[in-house]
Simulated assay, not measured.
Amino acid sequence: MVRTTFCNFIHSTKSLIPGKKRQKKSLILFLPDSLLQKIYKFLSPVDKVCLCLSCKTLFNLFSTILEHKEFAFPQLLKIKEPRKCINNQDVSRNQLLLRLETKEQLYCGACLKLHPRKSFNTPQAPNNQPLQRRCRQNAGIVDLCPCISLTGADRRNIIRLLENSTISDPTLGGRFDLIDDDEQGSYLLHRCSYATTNHWRTRLLMNVFIGLDRQLRVNTKYTLSSQSVPRVNRRAEPVFACPHTDLTMFAGWFRDSSKCKYCHTSFEGTSVSPATFEVTRMLGGCTRSESEVWLKQSRFTEEAWDDYLAFWRDSAAIRDGVRKDFRKRKAILARSREPARSGTMLSISRRRLPLNAKTPAYISAQTV
Rank of each mutant, 00 (worst) to 15 (best):
C7L: 12
H11C: 04
Q23E: 04
L36V: 13
K38M: 13
K41M: 08
F42E: 09
P45F: 15
C55M: 14
H68F: 13
F71E: 15
F71Q: 10
F73W: 09
Q75G: 12
K78N: 15
K80T: 01
S92D: 12
L96Q: 05
Q105V: 03
C108E: 02
A110R: 15
H115D: 07
R117I: 10
S119F: 00
A125L: 05
N128P: 01
Q129F: 11
C135M: 11
V142W: 00
R160I: 08
L161G: 06
E163V: 03
I167G: 02
S168G: 05
D177S: 11
L189Q: 04
G211D: 07
R234P: 05
V239Y: 00
F240A: 04
P243G: 11
H244Y: 14
T248P: 06
S257Q: 13
C260A: 12
H264V: 07
T265S: 13
T270E: 02
V279G: 01
L295S: 09
S298A: 08
Y308T: 02
A310N: 05
S315G: 14
S315M: 10
I318W: 02
R327F: 04
R329E: 13
I332P: 00
T344I: 15
L346R: 09
L346N: 08
L355G: 15
L355C: 06
A357H: 00
P360T: 04
